[in-house]
Amino acid sequence: MNQAIADFSNSFTLNDASVLSLMDKEHGWQNKYRRIMLMGKELPAFDETLKREESQVAGCESQVWLVASWHQDQLLLAASSDAKIVKGLIAIVLAAFNGKSHRQVLEFDMPSYLDQLGLMDQLSPSRGNGIKAIINRILLLAEQGPDRS
């Protein structure tokens, strides 16, 4: 287990229910956008040593780094970006998957979650593709399972 990933993961306190609750309290897309930016500010510090070429997520307009480690059957995630809004989108995605079991990650209904948030209708096509690339990377890690990371 990578300690930098574990530290990030354990410091990240949002979960999918809290994200849905926070976003539900906001009215209008401008307020929701502001909330997304605030969630991005809540991401723990991302260890600079994790910003390697192999941790970059292809398909994102901005630079995005995503690393994962399994501890027992728990997926530990750490991610960051050079763009404020993307950091918020990362927080939304990590809230769904971080600290979850292999089975929970694979069974999570991401399309429903994103639909409840109303995100995909509001994001530019390039941002939408970026969030999908992040999700797909996490799902690939989950499909490989705890024994492969």
Rank of each mutant, 00 (worst) to 15 (best):
residue 1 M to S: 13
residue 1 M to Y: 11
residue 2 N to D: 13
residue 3 Q to I: 11
residue 5 I to D: 04
residue 7 D to T: 14
residue 10 N to D: 14
residue 10 N to R: 15
residue 15 N to F: 02
residue 17 A to M: 09
residue 18 S to M: 09
residue 29 W to F: 07
residue 30 Q to E: 15
residue 30 Q to K: 15
residue 35 R to S: 10
residue 36 I to N: 00
residue 41 K to M: 10
residue 44 P to Y: 08
residue 48 E to D: 15
residue 48 E to Y: 09
residue 48 E to P: 09
residue 49 T to C: 08
residue 50 L to Q: 11
residue 54 E to S: 13
residue 55 S to I: 02
residue 60 C to W: 03
residue 65 W to Y: 12
residue 65 W to S: 04
residue 68 A to I: 01
residue 74 Q to G: 05
residue 78 A to L: 03
residue 81 S to C: 09
residue 85 I to R: 06
residue 87 K to C: 13
residue 89 L to E: 06
residue 90 I to G: 02
residue 91 A to C: 08
residue 92 I to C: 08
residue 92 I to V: 15
residue 94 L to H: 09
residue 95 A to S: 14
residue 100 K to N: 09
residue 101 S to R: 10
residue 101 S to T: 15
residue 113 Y to P: 03
residue 115 D to K: 14
residue 116 Q to R: 15
residue 117 L to Q: 08
residue 117 L to G: 06
residue 117 L to P: 00
residue 117 L to A: 03
residue 118 G to D: 09
residue 118 G to T: 08
residue 122 Q to D: 02
residue 124 S to D: 05
residue 127 R to Y: 01
residue 129 N to W: 00
residue 130 G to T: 00
residue 131 I to C: 01
residue 132 K to H: 06
residue 137 R to C: 04
residue 138 I to H: 05
residue 139 L to W: 05
residue 140 L to M: 13
residue 140 L to K: 15
residue 142 A to I: 06
residue 144 Q to I: 05
residue 146 P to H: 10
residue 147 D to T: 12
residue 147 D to Y: 11
residue 149 S to Q: 13
